Amino acid sequence: IGRFLARIHTVGAARPFVHRPALDLQTFGFASRDVLLTGGYLPLDMESRWVKAFDEAMLVAQTVLESVGDVKKIRLHGDCHPGNILWTPEGLPGAGPHFVDLDDARSGPAVQDLWMLLSGDRPQCLRQLGALVDGYEEFAEFDRRELALIEPLRTLRLVHYSAWLAQRWHDPIFPINFPWFGTSDYWKGQADMLQEQAEAMQAPPLMA
């Protein structure tokens, strides 16, 4: 998968998107917050708690981004997790991985398309990351400074996902499939996860 992603990113780096937005604090963080607050999706008993956790997490994320400095922004898949990869078995035409669901394609750091492929505890993630980067670097360079962006990117995805649900809540199928969205328990969990992410962003990053 690392080799295949590097090939995709080589094409993605050739030129920028014309209409797709970038993945950054504004588009995934603050814009998502505005969608949630102006739309009244947070229950009153959880709004201040979530906003406080959001503000603290964004402050830490901003600090990490500034410490990393400028990194190259390329066209990305944007939502590269195992559920969006289909495999054709060896021996058949087109054997190998096929990446689907490009709804979240946008520009950002290459590591955005790597970190969602990691799972398990830290040692497991380190092994998986090492294998991904080794394969990636057979076809393209990988800026290891971007590894420090994994937890900030995870934090932004957490907020963006809630806004994504909110923006589709008018679709009758969404309240059926996501009945917990909008409940106090859901937003308590979201606030707790943002607090956990604020701590995770200050921990030493994964290395490869």
Rank of each mutant, 00 (worst) to 15 (best):
K73C: 05
D55R: 11
L59I: 14
V60H: 03
A57R: 04
C80V: 03
K73D: 09
L86N: 09
V60T: 10
P82E: 12
G78C: 02
G69H: 03
L59Y: 07
P82I: 06
G69D: 01
L59W: 11
A61P: 08
T63N: 08
E56T: 13
K73L: 15
L92R: 15
E56K: 07
T63C: 09
H77I: 02
G96M: 02
G94C: 12
G94Y: 04
P93W: 06
V64L: 05
V71S: 00
I85V: 07
G96F: 01
D70N: 07
T88L: 13
P97V: 05
I74P: 00
M58S: 04
D55M: 10
K72C: 02
I74L: 14
V64T: 06
M58P: 07
E56D: 07
L86H: 14
I85W: 13
S67V: 03
R75N: 07
R75E: 04
L92M: 09
V60Q: 03
A57E: 02
E66Q: 09
K72Y: 01
G91C: 09
G91A: 05
M58H: 05
T63S: 07
T63P: 14
S67W: 05
L76R: 00
P89F: 05
T88M: 12
A95I: 14
V64H: 02
V60A: 06
V68K: 14
D79W: 01
K73H: 09
G91P: 11
G96P: 00
P93L: 08
A95S: 13
P97G: 11
A95Y: 14
W87N: 04
A95L: 08
G69T: 03
E66L: 05
G83K: 07
T88N: 15
P89W: 08
V68M: 08
E90N: 15
E66S: 15
T88P: 12
D79C: 02
H77F: 04
V68A: 11
H81L: 15
Q62T: 11
L86D: 11
L76T: 00
V71R: 02
E56G: 05
S67A: 15
N84E: 02
L76V: 00
C80E: 02
R75S: 14
D55T: 15
P82A: 12
G78Y: 00
T63R: 12
Q62P: 13
C80K: 00
P97W: 13
Q62G: 11
S67R: 14
M58V: 08
W87Y: 15
K72F: 02
E90K: 12
G94A: 08
R75F: 09
A95P: 10
T88D: 11
K72G: 01
